[in-house]
Design a binder for these strands. Structure first.
Length: 709
RNA sequence: GGUCGCAUAGCUCAGCUGGAUAGAGCACCUGCCUUCUAAGCAGGCGGUCCCAGGUUCGAAUCCUGGUGCGAUCACCA
């Protein structure tokens, strides 16, 4: 970096001397591998003002630099690129500076530096953590570490969503169907146990929902007095029966697609449950349609609604088959209607429970505390397994009332406004956004209110000037609005809020849904990765002399390394498609590959039991040594870049490049085998420096490195 | 429909504020373990950088329009 500023100064001097022109912006970039040189000046942009040709200019500047800058030992010009070769002495200087520093690249935080709070994980307490949480947790943890390494103070936090209807659902189901089960009595992890009852609630809910929908529908049909004459259906004006009619029409069409070889478009155009007015009794096609339509209606009329049992022929069987699907669609549509949902007893009971909780009912609160504790114990195990921690936990049960005061103050200042029904809103249409509610008409807080209050609380609790929220990109809009509101409320720190928005982790089958059991469980995944690491290690059999305990620890380190690297190497904002069928790789651009390289380096260091010789100024670097040192030089700026971009992926990719470079060095140049004592010293120390950086950068990703593997 | 994000090799992904012939890994094909750990190294095959315009000496990168995929637009969180 220092070098670049000397070069800039000298290039400016050169241009001034030769052309008598002051040049402003110069562009340097690392020289591409296929050309000789270390750093390249792009001369294209200067041509316009200097009115010369690129090769001539390159030669002129190159000569000047070679003569006047001691670090420059040579150059070559390719079109508008001046490739500058730096001296071995320059690289040696750099290397001597960093070779004994374990903290190379890491900037200590200034004493008076304000902190940045990183929020991540923030789970609901009604179900176990899954792969989606893992991405969140790894990202948040890593970004906090990177921010620290880049010279900031960072604090890790999570807001535990410990209250609300979701946990009441688990509580209710446990109370009703749990028979007093506990994590102890079942041997289940607490979060798993509570999660099971959340699923149980959903199953019961769906059962009841179906029953209520059916009954309601039957009642309305009876009331409509169709007398089993389904062709009269279209004359009934009733919303539920309209759904029935439209689904019946679909079924009818499907049946006629099957029975005739008419084009589906023609059928769609001609077949209506409602009427036959288009159909012509003398037209052959229309006759066919009328025939099957007649059979369909006849079948319907022979059966009462929701039963399709009165089957007399093969024909009926086909109709019954389509009808079953149709009735299912009808019920699904009706189940979405508020008049039905609001009549589901078990859901009402859960809501009742939430009200009791809010009123501080001792029994409900006791149950809530008990089950939440089970969940916390479970989460703790998962966090431990992942090797992450928090400086402070916030709990929604303690913060959900925050923010109301601020909103009321904002109301007085005219930032918010009240609607007739008493609800409070903010108008963000000037910013290209919508209106957003901040207080319900009954005066209670919404999600946004809480987040406003919690943010303010955190600034009170900690000496921080900014916050990073690690939350999925489905909440992009929410955070845009939140930050804008805080800014309008006049908080100066609102400019330093950052939504670390990351893409969803999807499965080949689509989105993960806890209620439907289509999730990749965090604990299971960690266990599987460890298992894979074990299998590979045992097959390779390089661990003679390790105890079983040491081996287990190693498998854990490798398995987690594979998982963490796999997730962190991807740009946070991109979505990840995770295929559980294809296991995470352990070869190539992977965590274990990098860990393996580290272990190799440690092996060399263990064997290098000789006095290191200092390296003389005249040392001539091997080409591989040179590129390794160049790669090491990039580490500090990579950390800064990763911090600015909140992107662990940049650290991962940097480390991979370093390790690739090292392995090439390792396999092409002998380290301990060389006769030359200086060479041997330098190479071992170089390997050691690479090892230090791997350990350091992997630390930023939350990945451990093994001494052997 | 409005808004936001993504689109690069068969697959998974890099590509810094615009720069040289667009790079890795996996998969496939060749070599390399009597020498420091082969979870490795050396090499080969593989590209309409979604499409069309524009800005520029120069575009995968910036702008405009379009296509595809995803997210979001609740007195849910």
């Amino acid at each position: 970096m220092e070098l670049q500023s000397t070069l800039i100064a000298h290039v400016k001097d050169a241009v001034k001397k030769i052309y008598d022109v002051e040049i402003e912006n110069l562009e340097f970039q690392p020289t591409r591998k296929d050309f000789e040189g270390d750093i390249t000046l792009v001369t294209f942009p200067m041509l316009k003002t200097l009115k010369t040709n690129p090769v001539k200019l390159g030669e002129e500047i190159g000569n000047y630099l070679a003569e006047n800058v001691s670090e420059v030992s040579g150059f070559n010009v390719v079109k508008g690129f001046l490739n500058i070769v730096l001296s071995d002495a320059y690289f040696l200087d750099f290397f001597n500076e960093i070779k004994d520093r374990k903290d190379f690249g890491i900037l200590p935080a200034a004493e008076d530096a304000k902190g940045i709070m990183v929020e991540y994980s923030s789970p609901n307490t009604n179900k176990p953590l899954h792969l989606g949480h893992i991405r969140n947790i790894l990202l948040g943890f890593s970004v906090a570490e990177i921010l620290s390494a880049a010279g900031n103070k960072s604090y890790k936090t999570q807001i535990v969503n410990d209250r609300g209807i979701h946990i009441c659902k688990s509580m209710l189901a446990w109370e009703r169907f749990g028979n007093g089960e506990t994590p102890k009595s079942t041997g289940l992890k607490g979060d798993k146990l509570v999660g099971n009852y959340y699923v149980k609630f959903d199953q019961e809910y769906k059962k009841e929902l179906r029953k209520v929908a059916e009954n309601e529908l039957k009642a309305r049909i009876e009331k409509a007095n169709l007398k089993n004459q389904w062709e009269n259906l279209s004359s009934v004006d009733e919303p539920f029966l309209k759904i029935v009619e439209s689904e019946y029409e679909k079924v009818l069409r499907r049946y006629i697609y099957e029975k005739t070889d008419l084009d589906t478009e023609i059928i769609d155009k001609k077949v209506f449950y409602r009427s036959d007015f288009i159909l012509d009794k003398n037209n052959k096609q229309d006759q066919a349609i009328l025939l099957f339509k007649g059979k369909f209606i006849a079948f319907l009329n022979r059966n009462t609604f929701l039963s399709v049992g009165n089957i007399e022929s093969e024909e009926d069987e086909l109709i019954a088959h389509y009808l079953k699907n149709g009735i299912n669609s009808i019920l699904i549509k009706i189940e979405g209607k508020p008049e039905i949902i609001n009549n589901i007893k078990i859901l009402q009971d859960a809501k009742q429970m939430l009200l009791k909780w809010e009123a501080g009912d001792p029994e409900v609160v006791a149950l809530w505390e008990k089950m939440n504790q089970w969940v916390y114990d479970g989460f703790e195990k998962t966090y431990d397994a992942l090797g992450v921690d928090f400086d402070k936990n916030y709990y929604e049960s303690e913060t959900y009332l925050l923010g109301k005061d601020v909103v009321n103050q904002g109301l007085e200042k005219g930032i918010f406004y009240k609607k007739e029904d008493g609800s409070v809103w903010i108008d963000l249409t000037d910013e290209g956004l919508d209106e957003k509610i901040v207080l319900r008409s009954d005066g209670t807080a919404v999600y946004m209110t809480q987040d406003i209050g919690t943010a303010i609380q955190r600034v009170k609790d900690f000496d921080i000037s900014g916050m990073v929220y690690t939350v999925g990109n489905e909440q992009d809009y929410h955070f845009k609005v939140l930050f804008l509101i805080l800014k309008k409320l006049g908080f100066d720190w609102a400019d330093y809020l950052y939504h670390l928005s990351y893409g969803m982790v999807d499965l080949p089958s689509g989105k993960m849904k806890s209620r439907e059991g289509t999730v990749v469980d965090a604990d299971d995944l960690i266990a599987e990765m460890t298992e894979t690491a074990r299998n590979i290690s045992e097959e390779l059999g390089k661990l003679d002399g390790y105890t079983n305990v040491e081996k287990e620890e190693l498998y854990r380190i490798i398995g987690l390394g594979a998982l963490k690297y796999y997730i962190l190497k991807v740009d946070p904002k991109k979505r990840i498609l995770f295929n559980p069928e294809e296991s995470v790789d352990f070869q190539g651009n992977t965590g274990p590959f990098i860990q393996y390289t580290y272990a190799r380096i440690q092996s060399i260091i263990r064997k290098a039991d000789f006095e290191f010789k200092s390296v003389e100024e005249s040392y001539k670097f091997h080409e591989k040594e040179r590129s390794l040192i160049k790669q090491l030089q990039l580490y500090p700026e990579t950390i800064q870049l990763a911090a600015e971009n909140h992107s662990p992926a940049l650290i991962a990719n940097y480390t991979y490049d370093l390790v690739k470079e090292f392995n090439s060095f390792y396999q092409n140049v002998t380290i301990l085998g060389t006769e030359d004592a200086t060479e041997k010293s330098l190479r071992v120390q170089l390997a050691n420096s690479v090892g230090n950086v791997i350990k350091s950068s992997f630390g930023l990703l939350g990945i451990q490195v093994p001494e052997r593997m």
